[in-house]
Computed example of a mutant assay.
Amino acid sequence: MKYCARCGSEYRDDIEQCSDCPGNPRLVDVGEMRSRGLPLPHELDKRVFVRAGTTDNPLMVEVFVELLQETDIPVLVRAGRSGVVDKLTTGNLLPWWEILVPEEQQERAAALIERERAQEAATTDEAVRAAEDEERETEQSAAPPSTL
């Protein structure tokens, strides 16, 4: 068999150029693929990625991805919807983003995501309380003097 060193496609021995890649690169044999350190098609990554979490917040997607990457969990992000119109016209109720990880790391990734989500909620609650306290203080100090 022959292989394309660019895309990894496998071809019969009588074919000379890759029909899948622009420029139709020359095909190489197994030895050449090995010498270049390239995997053969049957050696490619076959991990199954599954949902570890979802979010509708674009900033949280970035936080989750960074968190998972810092803990050496491979992560893919898939858009569940392409726009606001989806929900209105198609009834698509999927979350905006799905965070996908290898199946064997799903449990660990989901726990990390939930812990980060809880920390974010606590921080948000604290910020809301602080803003409400500040608003009350401002209202009390700006109250006009009462005249009797």
Score class of each variant (00 low, 15 high):
3 Y>E: 02
8 G>F: 06
11 Y>C: 10
14 D>C: 10
15 I>E: 09
17 Q>D: 12
19 S>N: 13
23 G>D: 08
23 G>R: 14
26 R>H: 00
27 L>S: 10
27 L>Q: 10
30 V>P: 06
33 M>H: 08
33 M>Q: 04
34 R>K: 15
34 R>Q: 14
35 S>H: 10
39 P>I: 01
41 P>I: 00
43 E>M: 04
48 V>R: 15
51 R>C: 12
55 T>E: 05
56 D>I: 07
57 N>P: 08
57 N>M: 11
57 N>E: 03
60 M>G: 05
63 V>M: 08
64 F>R: 09
64 F>Q: 12
69 Q>N: 06
69 Q>E: 06
72 D>K: 13
72 D>I: 06
73 I>C: 07
79 A>W: 12
81 R>L: 08
89 T>Q: 11
91 G>I: 02
93 L>Q: 13
96 W>K: 06
97 W>A: 13
98 E>G: 09
99 I>R: 13
99 I>E: 05
102 P>H: 02
109 A>F: 01
110 A>K: 03
110 A>S: 06
116 E>V: 01
116 E>I: 01
117 R>W: 04
117 R>E: 05
117 R>N: 08
117 R>V: 01
117 R>C: 05
118 A>V: 15
125 D>H: 15
129 R>N: 07
130 A>N: 08
132 E>K: 08
132 E>P: 07
136 R>G: 08
138 T>Q: 14
139 E>V: 03
141 S>D: 05
143 A>L: 02
144 P>V: 00
